[in-house]
Design a binder for these strands. Structure first.
Lengths: 218, 218
DNA sequence: ATATGTGAACGGCTTCACAGCC
DNA sequence: GGCTGTGAAGCCGTTCACATAT
């Protein structure tokens, strides 16, 4: 029903969808929870529990229909067909994101980009996406009823740009700036902090070979 | 002491460290848990619990010493001073990551990049970082005892490159490819899936205002 | 008086185990 | 027999509340 699906489950559902797509391309039309779970890197029980949020779609003793399952997932997590998003900050990272084709594959379209120096940027990236000045954000976002934005501006500008976006109707921000954004209730922020991801990784990487006793025997 | 710090706590410790750096720049030398928590976007109790993993460093009735705290965090999560990492796949995203200055700020240095077409890439990016062919990965990684790698190759190549990296001694991979990497025990993978982050965001963004009641099964 | 440190309660996500259906 | 669907149990991280230290 109208239940809210946990954040982590939503994320995994996207993974399943991607795996299913691959299976479909290979002509497979039925999968068991264990097979799909293995491909997705999770436990079968986890996967079945996740699917529980969608209703009942498997056939006991057999498995799931690849096509039907994809349909249901897409309907549940991919609200619209092709979601329009804007991107603010066309620097190194922003440019790469504009060229990244993974977004389109998952049903998103970057319909406009904004930068402080739009003319120079437009020339540099040479893409079909319109590049406008940051002072045009509000106008564009309002008129086109954009609800999601990708934020890739330098840290010091992030909060200010986020404020603008929210003021004009954006309710979802994918933030790549290394700052904690303050936004009003109802606005969702998903942050990807590249440096912190690397830092986190480094902690869990075992040190080279500090003379001490290697961790427990297993 | 030698306890293992939870993944999420490690992540937050990095955030605290970044906030502390800002405070230090502003000449502040003491903070309370509540003040720092607000800056980091977490609850004071959460922050104190996180600091519990590091030992006791606050002064009751007063707060924490900014300098001392930074020192302890750095010592705990930033194992070495300047960690060398390599980057594989210098496409759109890879190029942006090479130019990203956030890594250096947090103590990482990309010492080499690898691509299928190194000559063309080297010319295009025009950076001081050496760009080598992917067949040179093993040699370079082994000789320089590299332990961490950033993976930004297209999906179909990811697993194969990961295998090479691991075979040569890499034990930590920051993966930007949209695939689930299979790695042996002892190797840590941290994945950032750009499209999935956006997809996840879109689910939690409230629909425009379609007040329709949509439920059938269940 | 004020702010830390921490055991205990709480809540949410994962995993298990088995009932139910093909 | 095989596999899904799901309540129950288990686990882990977060939040609370208060003892403790300055």
């Amino acid at each position: 029903m109208g239940e809210v699906i946990p954040k982590k489950a939503v994320y995994r559902l996207s993974i399943y969808h991607r795996c299913l797509r691959k299976l479909e391309e290979n002509g497979v039309d039925t999968v068991s929870s264990s097979a799909l779970a293995k491909a997705a890197g999770v436990k079968p029980s986890q996967l079945r529990k996740d699917f529980g949020y969608l209703g009942q779609f498997g056939t006991r003793g057999l498995g799931y229909s690849v096509g039907a399952l994809m349909e249901v997932i897409k309907k549940t997590i991919g609200r619209a067909k092709l979601q329009p998003v804007v991107l603010v900050g066309v620097g190194n990272l922003g440019s790469a994101l504009l060229r990244y084709d993974g977004f389109k594959k998952e049903g998103f379209e970057v319909v406009a980009a904004f930068d402080l120096d739009p003319a120079q940027v437009a020339e540099r990236i040479a893409l079909d996406i319109p590049v406008l000045g940051q002072d045009k954000i509000c106008e564009f976002v309002s008129e086109n009823e954009i609800r999601m934005a990708i934020l890739a501006v330098p840290g010091p500008f992030a909060q200010s740009v986020a404020n603008d976006l929210v003021a004009c109707g954006v309710v979802g921000i994918l933030n790549f700036s290394p700052v904690i954004l303050q936004v009003p209730d109802g606005v969702v922020v998903n942050s990807v902090d590249l440096a912190l991801e690397l830092e986190q990784l480094s902690y869990f990487v075992r040190p080279p070979e500090t003379g001490e006793i290697e961790d427990d025997a297993k």
